[in-house]
Design a binder for these strands. Structure first.
Length: 669
DNA sequence: GTAGGGTTAG
């Protein structure tokens, strides 16, 4: 009874003051209002306010809604007549901004409070999402003279969202009467805490459900990875034929859920089940119809699987589009790199927001057009952290390390705090520059800013080992226990291999095989390690084990290593055999390995073959000429040496200092 | 659209 009555009051309180009652309908309204006044003195006060106060209250709430809190406070202070709603609105303003001290001050100052005042304060404390504040909320809840559904439900959802389901359930069981919102709060709580089974049990047990119950369950199930369960629930409880309930939320959620998993056909099936009404704006009371979110979600599904044609088809068919629709479409083009279409759409789009600008920037960065990326970056009106991260990552990926560093300093100067994405890029910059000093600084910044996750730790390992600080790399690797992925192992083994610690690389590789499945990259490092210390048989064994035991097809890098291994051991004919029989066109690493081996074993004939192949692949490189020249000089074949020098001069190639094939061929990643 | 609770795409 109380529940029904309070619902009536809620409805009526939305009605404006009625100056006269010419119609029967209005008279009924008035009489019901009168009834309510009798039971709820606070409502009499609310409704007996003068039109002036009503207007000013409205103004305050409007100011708060548009984020102009201080203006609202000025207006509040200037009012000489205030109602409870005036106070409550102002308190609400502070509660929204989580300024609980100010809210609390007003709450204490106000001459009379009603249930809403208390509820506002409770919800403020709850939303702070800090453990001790929830207790402040509970204190108020216990103190308040009377409670309604909102009081109970606020408190329940507060506990549920803080993972304290025991307390939430205690209140749920204690409350005199429960409504749909109480049940929804409990179900959401279970889902937040990963208790799928109880969430479903409560959902089935609740006496009455609404579309929010279904939406909450569906989205929670998807967040718990239970996509198929969610689909079954929707099938069972989402009665399309009724058409009264606003099912489109639940449908949209599931469409997006399928999209995340790339199950685009199932998403489309759902999308097609939602009535479209082909552009009719007024389809009566039927709320179950496609809305802009349905279209956007379906588009996202197509974008996700790279089906840009279908996405565009939907985009073109949409009767109205919002910023989200445009961004999804632009992002779709960005993801398949086709940038012309993306920038055309961007130019056509009515109100590009920061998200749109960021998409365009990272798109141009992706295709290596740093100039355009930077252009857009400088022109955009509001740069956020993602904008900075996109442009810095773009510079890093395109190996403009100095540019990346410059942007990073500027970003800090302009008052943006780097996050893990920023620092990951700057870490890669340190690796690219082989700048241990910078790398250490970034490492410190990482430690200060957040707890490093697996990808960041992997970048740290790579940075330290690439900079030669192998002990520090190993330290990070050990600290990661037990959270390592295959990249961590590859980074560490690669670090050992490239610095000649073959024994350590092989030992770690044996350990790796007992924990995770190696990848082709692991084998590049292992072969590399074998090459370094001349482990010929071990190298061959690993090469065959990769193919036969791990089913990994050898790539040109593996062949380059193998050529290096056998060639250095003096088996130059076998090395040449390998090159002639490998299933790829040999690249510069392969010929470089052979040339290096020829130099070691003074095989000038074969060296000539390798050098010629290299010159064909890289006509502007001086390395093969220099190596060949040195070989002839060593053998005192001065005529041949002179020929090489002349030929090099004819091609106007200058000797690059500090460059040698023997070194570079050992530096595979 | 004068104040408070549960749900929806990035």
């Amino acid at each position: 009874m109380t529940a029904m009555f309070s619902r009536v009051v809620m409805k009526l309180s939305k009605l404006p003051l009625i100056p006269c009652m010419p119609t029967l309908k209005n008279r009924l309204k008035h009489e019901s209002l009168f009834l309510c006044y009798c039971g709820f003195p606070s409502l009499i006060r609310s409704f007996s306010q003068t039109p002036k106060v009503y207007q000013l209250n409205k103004k305050i709430s409007h100011l708060i809604r548009s984020g102009r809190l201080s203006e609202a406070r000025d207006l509040f202070d200037s009012m000489n007549e205030r109602t409870i709603i005036t106070w409550n609105s102002m308190i609400n303003g502070y509660v929204q901004r989580r300024e609980m001290a100010k809210a609390c001050q007003l709450f204490n100052e106000m001459p009379k409070r009603d249930i809403v005042s208390w509820n506002l304060m409770i919800s403020g404390y709850i939303s702070c999402h800090v453990g001790r504040y929830i207790e402040e909320g509970k204190k108020l809840f216990d103190q308040m003279p009377e409670r309604d559904f909102v009081s109970w439900n606020t408190m329940i959802s507060g506990y549920a969202k803080n993972g304290r389901m025991d307390e939430a359930l205690k209140l749920f069981n204690k409350m005199p009467e429960r409504n749909i919102v109480s049940w929804n709060a409990i179900i959401t709580g279970f889902l937040l805490n990963g208790n799928v089974a109880l969430a479903i049990e409560f959902f089935k047990k609740m006496p009455k459900r609404d579309s929010a119950s279904l939406s909450a369950l569906i989205s929670g199930l998807i967040q718990n990875g239970e996509l198929d369960v969610a689909a079954r629930i929707l099938h069972e409880y989402g009665n399309i034929d009724e058409g009264k309930e606003d099912l489109v939320h639940a449908y949209n959620t599931l469409i997006a859920g399928y999209g995340q998993k790339g199950r685009v056909e199932e998403a489309r099936h759902l999308f097609d089940q939602i009535p479209n009404y082909k552009g009719q704006t007024d389809v009566g009371k039927n709320k179950f119809k496609r809305n802009i979110v349905s279209w956007n979600s379906m588009m996202m599904c197509y974008v996700k699987v790279g089906d840009i044609v279908s996405a565009r088809d939907l985009f073109d068919k949409m009767i109205e589009r919002d910023t989200f629709s445009w961004n999804t479409m632009i992002n779709g083009y960005v993801q398949i790199s086709a940038m012309e279409e993306a920038s055309t759409l961007f130019a056509k789009m009515p109100n590009p927001n920061t998200f749109s600008w960021n998409s365009i920037i990272s798109g141009f960065a992706q295709i290596g057009d740093l100039k355009l990326a930077k252009d857009f970056f400088e022109r955009m009106p509001h740069k956020n952290l993602i904008s900075w991260n996109s442009i810095i990552a773009g510079y890093e990926k395109n190996e403009d390390y100095k540019g990346a560093i410059k942007l990073f300093s500027r970003m800090k100067l302009e008052g943006h705090r780097p996050d893990r994405h920023t620092l990951s890029s700057v870490l890669s910059v340190s690796t690219g520059l082989v700048d241990l000093y910078l790398g250490r600084q970034v490492h410190q910044l990482v430690t200060k800013t957040f707890i490093p996750d697996v990808p960041i730790n992997n970048s740290l390992i790579t940075m330290y080992s690439r900079c030669g600080a192998i002990i520090e790399a190993r330290y990070i690797f050990n600290e990661m226990e037990p959270k390592k992925d295959v990249i961590s192992w590859n980074a560490m083994i690669g670090g050992y291999a490239s610095h000649g610690f073959a024994a350590e690389a092989l030992e770690l590789f044996e350990l790796m095989k007992s924990k995770v499945h190696p990848t082709y990259i692991s084998f590049i490092s292992v072969l590399n390690a074998c090459a370094h210390v001349g482990l010929v048989e071990e190298g061959k064994r690993q090469f065959h084990s990769m193919i036969n035991e791990y089913g990994i097809m050898p790539r040109v890098e593996h062949f380059a290593s193998l050529v290096d291994i056998v060639g250095r051991h003096g088996q130059l004919e076998e090395a040449l055999d390998l090159i002639n029989n490998m299933p790829f066109e040999p690249d510069k690493a392969v010929w470089g390995a052979l040339l290096g081996a020829c130099r070691v074993h003074n095989n000038v004939e074969l060296a000539q073959v390798a050098a010629e192949a290299l010159i064909k692949l890289e006509p502007e490189s001086s390395a093969p000429f220099v190596l060949l020249y040195n070989m002839y000089a060593d053998l005192a074949q001065w005529d041949d040496a002179e020929k090489v020098r002349v030929s090099m001069e004819r091609r106007s190639i200058k000797k690059q200092t500090g460059y040698s094939w023997v070194d570079s061929s050992n530096c595979h990643r």
